[in-house]
Computed example of a mutant assay.
Amino acid sequence: MLFRQLFDPETSTYTYLIADTSDKEAILIDPVLEQVERDLKLLNELGLNLRYCLETHIHADHITGTGKLREITGCQGIVPQNAQAACADRFLKDGEVLQLGEIPIEAIATPGHTDSHMAYLVNGKQILTGDSLLIRGCGRTDFQGGDAGILYDSVTQRLFTLTDDTLVYPAHDYRGQTVSTIKEEKQFNPRFTGSDRSSFIQLMASLDLANPKKIAEAVPANQQCGKVSATI
C-alpha cells in the first residue's frame, strides 16, 4: 500500500493519497483545489490511476479539488451520506467499506463538527479523522449543523474505541504535527482528557472562534463539488 500525506500551507489542510501498488488504483481524500496540479503530477509520476476522490465532510475553509480532478481523470466524487452535495457520484453510509484494490476503507460516522461527517479507517490500521479529532484538539461545532455533544459522542464512542495503536491522521494541523495514535489522544488530548460530555459542551461553547476566512466561498462551492459560482 502506498500512503502519502500532502499539505496545503494556506489552509493547513492535509490531503491523503492512498494507492494499491499492485493494480495502481488510487484515491485522494480531501483534495484542495489549489493543489490539483501538484496531485496530478504526483499521480502521473507514480503511474497511478485516480479512481476516487473522497471527502470527510463539506469543508468551510477550502474549496475541494474533487470537481476539477473528476473532469480531468474521470474519477468518482464521493461524500458522506446526507452531505449537501447533489453533484457527488456516490454517498457513503456508516459502516460501508470502499474497496480500493486490496485496501478496505471503512466509513465511520463521526458527526458533530458538521452534521454529515465521516472518518475513514484504512486497512484497519490508520484512521483519517477529518475535522472530528485533531492532534491534541478537535474541530469546532458552531456552524454547519455542528453539535458539541454529538461530537463528544463521536470521538469517545466511535474513535476512542479503536485499538490504541491505530494511527490518527487529521484533515488539518496548525502546529506542524503530522500523525498521532488513538492511545496518545485518549491520554493527552486536552479537549477530552478529564472532560465529561457536559464539560466538553461548555468548553466548546466558550471558544468564541472567528469564522474561517473562506467560509462564504467554500461551503457553496463544495456543495457543488468544488465548482465556484460566477456570483462569488
Rank of each mutant, 00 (worst) to 15 (best):
M1V: 14
F3H: 12
P9K: 11
E10A: 13
T11V: 07
T21A: 14
D23G: 01
E25G: 05
V32H: 02
E34L: 07
E34D: 12
E37W: 06
D39K: 02
E45M: 12
G47D: 11
L48F: 07
L54P: 01
H57M: 13
G65K: 01
L69T: 02
E71Y: 00
E71H: 01
Q76E: 14
N82C: 11
A86L: 11
L92R: 04
K93C: 05
I108W: 02
A109H: 11
T110S: 04
G112T: 01
H113R: 07
A119T: 04
I127W: 03
G130R: 05
L134S: 13
G137H: 08
R140H: 15
Y152E: 04
S154E: 12
S154Q: 14
Q157E: 15
L159V: 13
T163D: 14
P170N: 03
P170W: 03
A171I: 00
I182Q: 06
K183L: 15
K186E: 08
F188S: 09
F192H: 14
S206H: 10
L209S: 06
A218V: 03
V219Y: 05
A221K: 01
A221H: 04
A221E: 07
N222I: 09
C225S: 08
S229R: 15
A230Q: 13
I232G: 12
